[in-house]
Design a protein around this nucleic acid. Structure first.
Lengths: 194, 194
DNA sequence: AATGATAAATGAACGACGTTAAGTTAACGT
DNA sequence: ACGTTAACTTAACGTCGTTCATTTATCATT
């Protein structure tokens, strides 16, 4: 199903396509999902779980280095988005017809992803970055920037995957440099080097 | 038409709806647009022109105060997006079925909007902000952040308009504070106060 | 003023798609 | 062996985008 989304490059996938991918007829799908919207909502949920798991394993592996996790976690986030553009759009910009009213960050899976970002930022603050900053506010700005870069990257099909990745990475790097610049003293330059 | 988009909250508007809004039958529309996609592309173009004009008049009025323009211009941008959510989504996140491959910043109208942002940043740099910064890179990050905040704001219909506006404004304010913090010396605090 | 040419709009019809309803087949407990 | 249940299929309906043939309106020409 995720493959189907990727292949079609659009979540406006005919039910007959998913049906024949599963090996049955369209009406048979209604035994498992109330309607097409429910199917797409389930796929969206699955996408959130995948993204969360990726970021969770990364955060466990790097919990000793919050600044590094923030960068690598953002890279992983961006890579997930660029590798699964249609799924990502379904997750974060679903059509209103799906009746999804909650923002991605308030739902359970999205909320947990946001928590991972927050703990990363808290860890950075504990190490002297972002002194006195309102981290909730900063986290939302940070997420907005990465999300926005990814979305803008989706738009121009002129760019190939490598160029999209570079553009997104530059945004993340700029953000990281800005965080690094908030630490008083020369340590910022030193920390940027690892 | 723009009203129709807003009323439906979706650019998946039946042609019969636009037809009766204009006062004719669906096939009559094909005399003016090759197909539905062409119609939506025209609306998108119109949206870009409106946004550009808003930002242009603002930039002319405030060209003496680039820092202020950057803030007010971003506010205007966000307000445009929140006032016309469906149109904005059509402009910056059109469905692939429309065959719009160019990114919004490379097309002529989008490019000009980006230029306004860039000149604002150049003006700031001339006043001592963002010393030695790569402004193209910074501009893309800035745009990404505002765009991302707007997009995330669209998602949760739980928030009312005022709350969405506050969330977006906080992102912009955070960005502005970060720019203000790049100017060496005490002048940053002083400039923030106007 | 009458007529013929041109443009534009209409009604009917087709194809794609989501969805529902009725009918058919298969599996299973008794 | 029979009735029940579950799952699937075929057929059909409604909506929507789009096309085509026909009609209506416009307007220059004589």
């Amino acid at each position: 199903m995720v493959r189907l989304l990727a292949a079609r490059d659009d979540f406006d996938v005919p039910l007959v396509a998913v049906a024949q991918a599963v090996g049955c007829t369209p009406p048979a799908l209604y035994g498992y999902f109330r309607n097409k919207g429910a199917l797409l909502r389930a796929v969206r949920e699955e996408g959130f779980n995948r993204l969360y798991n990726e970021k969770l394993t990364l955060s466990e592996r790097m919990h000793a280095d919050p600044f590094g996790y923030l960068r690598e976690g953002s890279y992983a986030y961006a890579r997930f988005a660029l590798d699964n553009p249609t799924l990502y759009r379904l997750m974060f910009a679903p059509p209103p017809s799906l009746g999804i009213g909650d923002d991605p960050l308030s739902g359970d899976p999205g909320r947990r992803i946001f928590e991972l970002l927050l703990t990363g930022l808290r860890g950075c603050q504990a190490q002297g970055f972002l002194p006195g900053m309102d981290l909730n506010r900063y986290a939302f700005m940070f997420w907005s920037a990465v999300h926005g870069a990814v979305c803008l990257g989706f738009q121009n099909r002129a760019l190939d995957d490598a160029a999209k990745w570079d553009a997104t990475r530059e945004v993340i790097d700029t953000l990281m440099e800005m965080i690094a610049a908030t630490v008083p003293g020369d340590r910022s330059q030193q920390l940027l080097r690892d």
